[in-house]
């Protein structure tokens, strides 16, 4: 076990999260990997322990059990030095337009659940005056589009939440990093036809995220070209935008 402390990764089965775990283990951090059916991560656990001589603990965790989040965090001993949220749920937009339960699930998974789990963490880090929070949001939150606006609006909420948290915790020297990926080749996008130039690999995202966190950055787009793409998209006048299909 290393003495650098534990990083908590929420939604650790995500392809991005697994690569991020690898990066932190490579830097010598121990890991809490939290996910549903976490036993699926046993081979990653042994791998990281063998390669990097760090301790990796698996935690069964469901983000949608909102009322359990505070206890979940209190149960971690030692408390983590940083947290990364990777969970997300895209869902099917057209289906969600008819299915209220699905729409709620998309909102809850991408927004409410994150607020529920991050608040107790933020309070603890604030009081300790140390720690970092990395939230994986999305460019989908930068402007609502008909293709995925339920997911996108939850991500917009999450981005705003992270921005507020950053403002609140700056005084306590707690870093909050907002990550806005564009397209990433993961389970979430499997089967979609993604433009190669705009699509990042999870390993690539992980390297950028961990580097940005270690450097104390605030907001990053991956790939960086997405910053420009979204700048343009955000500035298209609404009268035109509302008639577009992008």
């Amino acid at each position: 076990m290393s003495d650098k402390g534990f990083v908590l990764i929420l939604g650790a089965k995500s392809d991005m999260a697994q690569s991020i775990a690898r990066e932190y283990a490579g830097l010598g951090f121990n890991l809490y990997l939290a996910a549903r059916n976490v036993a699926d991560l046993e081979s990653l656990q042994s791998d990281l322990q063998i390669r990097h001589q760090v301790e990796v603990r698996l935690l069964e965790w469901d983000a949608l059990k909102l009322e359990e989040q505070s206890n979940f965090y209190q149960g971690l001993a030692p408390a983590p030095v940083g947290v990364v949220t990777a969970l997300g749920f895209l869902g099917d937009q057209t289906q969600a337009q008819q299915d209220a339960a699905l729409a709620q699930k998309i909102l809850q998974s991408n927004f409410n659940a994150l607020v529920a789990v991050l608040e107790p963490i933020a309070a603890d880090f604030e009081q300790k005056q140390s720690g970092f929070i990395v939230g994986i949001s999305s460019v989908a939150g930068d402007r609502g589009r008909k293709a995925n606006y339920i997911y996108g609006s939850a991500k917009a909420g999450f981005s705003a939440y992270l921005s507020g948290l950053r403002n609140r915790l700056a005084e306590a020297d707690v870093q909050v990093l907002t990550v806005k990926p564009g397209f990433v080749a993961t389970k979430m996008t499997a089967g979609m036809d993604l433009p190669e130039k705009l699509t990042a690999q999870p390993e690539q995202v992980a390297k950028m995220v961990v580097k940005a966190q270690q450097k104390g950055r605030n907001v990053i787009y991956v790939k960086p070209i997405w910053w420009l793409v979204m700048l343009i998209i955000r500035h298209i006048p609404e009268v035109i935008f509302k008639k577009m299909s992008i």
Binding site: S43, L44, S46, D47, R51
Partner: peptide
């Protein structure tokens, strides 16, 4: 490409098949 077990006493290593020999050497 996950390492599954490594017994440093006996030198027995269990690994998934996509692991490179170079990765084994590092460990």
């Amino acid at each position: 490409n996950h390492f599954l077990q490594f017994d440093k006493e006996s030198g027995i290593l269990r690994a998934q098949s996509g692991i490179l020999l170079s990765e084994i050497l590092q460990v």
